[in-house]
Amino acid sequence: MSKPLNFDDIVTMQHIYKTFNKGSVNEVVLFTDFNLTIKEHEFVSVVGSNGSGKTTLLNILCGTTAIDSGKIYLRDRDIGDMKEYRRASFIGRVFQDPAKGTCSTLTILENMSLADNKGKIFGLSAGVNKRRIDYYRTQLELLHLGLEDKIDIPVGSLSGGQRQALALLISTMTPIDLLILDEHTAALDPRSSETVMELTDRIVRDKSITTLMVTHNLRFAVNYGDRLIMMDKGQCVIDVCGRQKDQYDISDLLKIFNEISIECGN
């Protein structure tokens, strides 16, 4: 009945069920028998109206939100019962809120040192490894934001765009199986969001990281990535890749958005 597991897929979600506030007046049935697979090196853009379940999908993958039933695999690992912080060793994540991806009271150097040690033991050796500083500098130079000259200032004094670029760099510094981006350009001004999106594309291409990106920017969804998913009420209503995806442009997506809204009667 279920599709056989293919371990070439990075992500396999099978028969996911999720209802919020079950049995109360506020019950929200979001996912019923939801399935999704993501292939290695795929860059998936996800669009969808507010409340369609995009963030919840990401939260389920990361382990922030528990599912009612279903199976989640990352490669061949069953991560369904794994704690969020354990899954994080395979998953990198950048949030919409620039404050979430870095520590504002720590310096850029300290943030990078912490991230560099991801998944390893945090013992009593020196927190900042002086021999790695040059490496961090070259990594920061790739952002073209001049952050390499500011490694000793607290991250809290950077702008949202700078913080988001740093968060992106930090979350992809160690090897990961999957990068998750939840509207990570939404809190930025148009120019910064453009910069961060280009940066994202560059990093993802360079390191060929499998990526799942949620965005409300239809142009980003159309221009970047090689697979496009549109979600509505906990279901994928569009799921296209390759040449099929190239046929969609922004106006098509907008039209479908409107049709969905009319169906809902609003």
């Binding site: 994080a88 870095t102 520590c103 991230a115």
Partner: peptide, 10 residues
């Protein structure tokens, strides 16, 4: 400072 960051670095 940021619990989510600690989670992110596993």
């Amino acid at each position: 400072d940021n619990e989510q960051f600690a989670i992110s670095i596993s």
